[in-house]
Simulated assay, not measured.
Amino acid sequence: MRQLVILCMFFSLLVACSSGPESSDTEKKEIFISAAASLSGALKKISEDFEAEHPNVNITLNFSGSGKLAQQIQQGAPVDVFLSADQNWMDVLEQDNLILPGTRVNFAKNSLVFISQKETDKKIHTLKDIDPGSIGQIAIGNPKSVPAGNYTKEALTNLGLWDNLIEHFVYAKDVRQVLTYVESGNAEVGFVYGSDLHRTESVQVLTEVDSDLYSPVVYPAAVLSTGESPELAKVFLSYLQSDSAQAVLENYGFMNY
């Protein structure tokens, strides 16, 4: 009888050991990613490709202005990975010890363009051609929370135009809203990223902003120290730097870092 009990216990242990890994492999895992609004198209595609390679992973995406997302993280939002459109907001989180050390990487670059509706006959070859007396409303991201708006302010300030145009600005919560304002005619012109041109066929580029007028538009990413899936987040961050993910970013108008 004693041998039978021992045999049963041994058999139960074997079943437990063999079934444990199988159940953990099939268990659905979550990654929560907060990313700059300008990344929405490319990151949706990259996330779909990542999920296809990792069937047990489900990615939840949250897009907005980088500043707003950083503030959400500071307030305790459950985020595993943060992708910013500038270094400043990533610096803020790093200073607050909200970034997992050693995980911060730069993964893409962008440019700034000045746009209008496609039907307009307005001709502006350089920003110096902007006439405050004849220009209508200008849509820009709010410089306090939207990196594209901050880059715009930097460029216009360096040209001595910011103060002269300030009454014309319509502030948007992110670059997607800037694009919507111009598409709908609620703003005559606006400043967006070069990659945003892949979202619509309803606008045209009046001029590309001279890159010497503003800081380089470099996108950093990092795993957050407060996230619930740091190891899985690191796997995603590694994938973001892969050739396949970089090809997707390039297809959506970003430049490889």
Rank of each mutant, 00 (worst) to 15 (best):
Q3A: 14
L4G: 04
M9V: 11
L13V: 10
L14Y: 10
V15W: 13
A16C: 12
S23T: 12
D25V: 12
E27R: 15
A35R: 01
A35H: 04
A35T: 05
A36R: 02
A37Y: 00
L39K: 13
L39I: 00
I46T: 07
S47P: 10
S47R: 10
E51F: 03
H54L: 09
I59L: 13
T60C: 01
F63V: 00
S64T: 04
G65E: 01
G67K: 00
K68G: 11
Q74F: 15
A77Y: 02
D80T: 06
L83D: 05
L83I: 15
S84M: 07
A85V: 03
D86P: 03
Q87A: 11
Q87F: 05
M90I: 09
E94H: 10
L98Q: 11
I99E: 04
G102H: 04
G102P: 08
T103R: 06
T103N: 07
A108F: 03
N110P: 02
N110W: 00
L112K: 00
V113G: 07
F114W: 05
S116D: 06
K118L: 09
T120V: 11
K122H: 10
I124L: 12
H125I: 10
T126W: 03
L127I: 08
K128V: 12
D129N: 11
D131N: 14
G133N: 13
S134Q: 13
Q137I: 10
N142A: 05
N142G: 04
K144N: 15
P147M: 04
A148C: 02
A148Y: 01
E154D: 09
L156Q: 09
T157S: 14
N158V: 07
N164D: 15
V170G: 09
Y171F: 12
A172Q: 02
K173I: 12
Y181R: 08
V189F: 03
Y193D: 01
T200E: 05
T200Y: 00
E201Q: 14
E201M: 06
E201S: 14
S202V: 06
V203D: 08
Q204C: 03
Q204I: 00
L206A: 09
V217K: 02
V218N: 08
A222Y: 03
G227M: 11
S229W: 06
E231G: 07
A233R: 10
S238M: 00
S238L: 06
Y239P: 12
Y239M: 06
Y239R: 09
D243H: 02
D243C: 01
S244I: 08
A245Y: 04
Q246M: 04
L249Q: 11
Y252Q: 12
G253W: 05
F254C: 12
M255G: 15
Y257K: 13
